[in-house]
């Protein structure tokens, strides 16, 4: 029993890693653009299919495929910014709807390119670590955990220590104030879109061998991400990470000890509770919206 609990904890840490990367990307885009990117799950899907194409298809090394996936999806983010987010900056619903349109386009491209069936990817490594007696962590999952730690730390440093990071935070708080400081809004939004999308891409790429991509894999991810950003407080980067960890543990434990559908329900009910009791999220500011 204790083995199962330990194993579930390890699984939760893995889940927390990829969930926080996805949620942080979504929050970053929201912070700067004021728009919830409904196509975020499809960006993740695009990252996964990059690995399908390059690693499974062209036999390139796994990590090359992952890096290309990150950059490629980051560029997709720039395309979105250029094509519609910029024009719809003061129009949250319009931006959301347009991102739904983009989601449909990405899904169709994936269907046309790879078919609707699951793509099975051979693991890039068979190695695993035995943490305790019978408690295992595959290297494939370890990569995701390490990537989350590295990327989130890098992002933290970027946002705290660099001029762009400072500008980006200023922009998330008050677009006008940031503009007054002589910061180019377009440049900031481009960087935010690239990073936000790129994070989704890298998660998709790294987890591709673990999840068997389909063109519709984005749906469950976006639901998860919504739950996390609502619980964490929309627009709160730190809140998103904490909420991702919380949600990952709850969801993984309920899945292991009850059922996946029950876990989804628990998550959604949790989110509804937060919305009802404190719409600004567990870690959001107290004032009324």
């Amino acid at each position: 029993m204790s083995e199962l609990i330990l194993q579930t904890i390890v699984n939760s840490i893995y889940a927390a890693s990829y969930m926080s990367l996805i949620a942080v990307g979504l929050v970053l885009i929201f912070g700067v653009m004021g728009v919830i990117n409904f196509a975020h799950g499809e960006l993740y899907m695009a990252g996964a299919y990059t690995v399908v194409a390059l690693y499974s298809g062209l036999n390139l090394p796994f990590f090359v495929a992952v890096v290309v996936g990150m950059v490629f999806v980051g560029l997709l983010g720039l395309v979105m910014e250029y094509a519609f987010f910029r024009a719809l900056r003061d129009n949250p619903l319009g931006g959301l709807i347009a991102s739904i349109g983009f989601l449909l386009i990405l899904q169709t491209v994936a269907v046309l390119g790879f078919g609707v069936r699951m793509a099975h990817i051979r693991p890039s490594t068979q190695e695993k670590i035995e943490l305790f007696d019978g408690v295992l962590l595959t290297h494939q999952r370890l990569y995701v955990i390490v990537a989350a730690i590295l990327l989130l730390t890098a992002l933290y440093i970027f946002l705290r220590k660099t001029k762009f990071g400072w500008a980006m935070r200023a922009c998330a708080q008050d677009t006008e104030a940031a503009a007054l400081q002589g910061i180019s809004l377009n440049q900031i939004t481009r960087i935010a879109m690239f990073i936000g999308a790129g994070l989704a891409g890298v998660v998709g790429a790294l987890t591709a061998p673990l999840v068997s991509p389909t063109p519709y894999m984005g749906h469950s991810i976006i639901v998860t991400a919504f739950i996390i950003i609502v619980v964490g407080g929309i627009g709160q980067l730190e809140g998103a990470v904490v909420a991702a960890i919380l949600y990952a543990f709850v969801h993984t434990f309920v899945t292991t000890f009850f059922d996946g559908v029950v876990a989804d329900m628990v998550g959604l009910v949790l989110m509804l509770l937060v919305l009802v009791v404190k719409p600004t999220g567990l870690f959001g500011a107290n004032d009324r919206v």
Binding site: I36, P92, L93, L96, V223, F226, I227, V230, I234, D259, V261, V262, D264, M265, L268, V269, M271, L272, L275, V276, P279, V289
Partner: peptide, 28 residues
């Protein structure tokens, strides 16, 4: 009762969550 404590974007997300809960109930 729960949903109209929210407005705008929060309502959008809240209604989505409520709908998904109903669908999961059908499934489960």
């Amino acid at each position: 009762f729960p949903l109209f404590r929210m407005k705008g974007f929060y309502f959008l997300i809240g209604s989505f969550a409520a709908g998904e809960v109903i669908r999961l109930i059908w499934k489960y």
